[in-house]
């Protein structure tokens, strides 16, 4: 009987090692591919701080592709871990990082910024990644989450809180639509492009801030693994096992706001990863023990984000497809296949 337990632990360790290997491979591939193809050998050379065959490759990798690949991995991990926290906290498989209105709040912030430029006759604001957009999105996400956190103090039932979050989302979406109705076509286009999402918007200068915010959120999520395990038993049982529910709930909602709000502000509202990756993680790991699941979800989020980014940039071409469409188009069949396969094997 002990051997079956050891076999399970070994299989889980093996899965983590395989995922790390895949992630490293994709990371190198994302540095090598794009409108200009760079041999993998030269990618490694540049990463080692040496000169590649062509001097321009060094600049392409270090100034553009490396920040983008790191952004993709961080964003994918952040959204996946946010989704995992939300699904466990609300005991709802459809919960994701955006259900509490983070995305809608950020969208409202950006839409307000877009309209403000129209009203004030200011120069058209830059696309995703501009300081104005990031601040507007962060303020919008924080504003809506502030309302949800206040509601959380009064509403004891998590499902009711989930519904309140969704309603806040609808409310902000309605305001966004009204704002867009009164905007000029150029501003609507600016806003729409922001909603497509992109990992290429975080500059080298912004990367340390993005990295710091996401790593802080991930560290908080890891520290809550045991609390998440208790929440698997439902709120009543979790409380009788010593969990201070109100404190944990606020901490997790705040952390999801930090992670999802940061990603939305810097990269736009990226759908799918937050809901799908936790399911994929549980299916592959065959466990819901968050101490083991959390690292797997972090790695899977990073992997799927890198794959989506690789495909969206159509290697060898100048065109870049909307990231949001690619995450769902590629991810959905893979995730459905793995989940169905696992379910039928159990």
């Amino acid at each position: 009987m002990k051997s079956s337990q050891n076999a399970l632990v070994n299989a889980q360790m093996g899965l983590v090692l395989i995922l790390i290997a895949i992630l490293l491979m994709l990371f190198c591939l994302s540095l090598a591919t794009g409108s200009v193809s760079i041999p993998l050998q030269d990618v490694v050379t540049v990463l080692q701080g040496q000169s590649p065959q062509k001097a321009s490759w060094s600049a392409i990798i270090l100034q553009f592709r490396l920040p983008k690949a790191i952004t993709a991995m961080l964003a994918g991990s952040a959204l996946a871990v946010s989704g995992l926290q939300m699904q466990t906290l609300f005991q709802n498989p459809l919960a994701g990082p955006y259900v509490l209105g983070v995305s809608s709040g950020a969208s409202l912030g950006v839409a307000l910024a877009v309209l403000a430029t129209t009203v004030m006759g200011a120069q058209r604001i830059a696309l995703t990644g501009s300081g104005t957009t990031i601040i507007a999105a962060l303020l919008g996400a924080a504003g809506v989450m502030g309302c949800v956190v206040i509601a959380a103090n009064y509403v004891k039932n998590s499902v009711t809180l989930l519904v309140i979050g969704l309603l806040f989302g609808y409310l902000t979406s309605a305001v966004v639509n009204l704002l867009l109705y009164f905007s000029v076509p150029e501003q609507i286009q600016t806003y729409l492009i922001w909603t497509f999402g992109s990992f290429a918007t975080v500059t080298q200068r912004q990367l340390p801030l993005f990295l710091g915010l996401v790593l802080t959120g991930l560290a908080i999520a890891f520290s809550q693994s045991k609390s998440l395990n208790l929440l698997l038993l439902g709120e009543t049982q979790a409380r009788t096992l010593g969990l201070t529910l109100s404190r944990v709930r606020l901490l997790m909602i705040g952390n999801v706001s930090l992670l999802a709000g940061t990603v939305t502000a810097f990269c736009g509202p990226i759908a799918f990863l937050g809901i799908a990756v936790p399911h994929l993680g549980r299916s592959l790991l065959r466990s819901t023990d968050h101490r083991r699941l959390m690292p797997v979800v972090v790695l899977l989020g990073a992997i799927l984000a890198l794959i989506a980014d690789l495909v969206s940039q159509l290697p060898g071409r100048q065109t870049i497809l909307p990231l949001n469409s690619i995450t769902a188009l590629i991810g959905t069949p893979i995730v459905v296949w793995i989940i169905v396969r696992r379910q039928s094997h159990r």
Binding site: Q5, Q91, L232, L233, G234, T236, Q237, T240, R282, L285, R286, S287, T288, D289
Partner: peptide, 15 residues
């Protein structure tokens, strides 16, 4: 003090 409620939430993926 331990409490065993009337209906438990059955966790998936836990031994």
């Amino acid at each position: 003090m331990a409490f065993l409620p009337q209906q438990q939430t059955i966790p998936g993926g836990l031994t």
